[in-house]
Design a binder for these strands. Sequence first.
DNA 1: CACAATGGTTTCAATTCGCAACTCAATGGG
DNA 2: CCCATTGAGTTGCGAATTGAAACCATTGTG
Lengths: 152, 152
Amino acid sequence: MSRTAMSAPTPGWTDPECPVARTLDLVGDRWSLLVIRDAMDGVRSFTEFQRRTGIARNILADRLRKLTAHGLLAQCAAPSGRRREYVLTDSGRDLFAVILTLRQWGQRHAFAPGEAHSVLLDEHGAPVPEIAPTSADGTLLGTGNTHVRKVR
Amino acid sequence: MSRTAMSAPTPGWTDPECPVARTLDLVGDRWSLLVIRDAMDGVRSFTEFQRRTGIARNILADRLRKLTAHGLLAQCAAPSGRRREYVLTDSGRDLFAVILTLRQWGQRHAFAPGEAHSVLLDEHGAPVPEIAPTSADGTLLGTGNTHVRKVR
DNA sequence: CACAATGGTTTCAATTCGCAACTCAATGGG
DNA sequence: CCCATTGAGTTGCGAATTGAAACCATTGTG
């Protein structure tokens, strides 16, 4: 079973028909996306997640449990030893674009000019270009350009 | 002054040199991004934010204050009447790509097949295409393809 | 075996949240 | 002018969530 019956957070969704709200119900807290960020960076162990994020250990345990329950992380046996480790699932890995846009917004708006920050590079060592939402015909999209159609 | 001296959340940043973490420090809570989502949808008044998100009034007041303090929203006089209203600033509007990637992830992973959800359309009524991060040469980027260079 | 590291759980105090009630303008009728 | 209404919050308070630190059970290692 690859992805059936995603268990919803306590009883229902904040706003059941809005995909933005559903995503935030799953990862929209203070820490989950930082855990995902570190997982994307190759972190797999409890202690390393704790060290890198600075999150309290009980909260980390809770978040790892929830992310696992929601299918964003999975626990598998470590290659060496019998200790288990956390790895991103396909849907967890698919948050790449979310993390990337958060990163790019932060670079543009949360740093003073010249202030040092980490950078995302591709395999050739070139900085990843900024994402620009466009329509099928290539038009740049933004708030003036688009609208949500509510489901009937 | 367009964007100098962005006031940081209580004393410092969670992870000062990571743009992802800084962005999450500003909007990474349960409600802020839903407020931004609704603002992008044209909502400008306290009551309407409250009605659409279902957030508690005191928390909404707090979030609007923080988002305003951080320069994502601004209060300006309403065109009619003397009542003030909340509008997105440039940096607030620039979260468009973040909201969009959250929406697209949600569509892919947080709905059962066939389950109804709202959709984002461009001005011609066509659905907005999915965002795919690529490098300068057009290669699809993901976790296997990229790495963070820590700032020295 | 003694000792440290990993991966948690427990405890408890401090925050934060959600809800309902209340205040305080500013309109809006009648 | 007087009263009802609406918008925009604030206040009080119990409930839920966090965070810090201590504790515990398994390995792993010299």
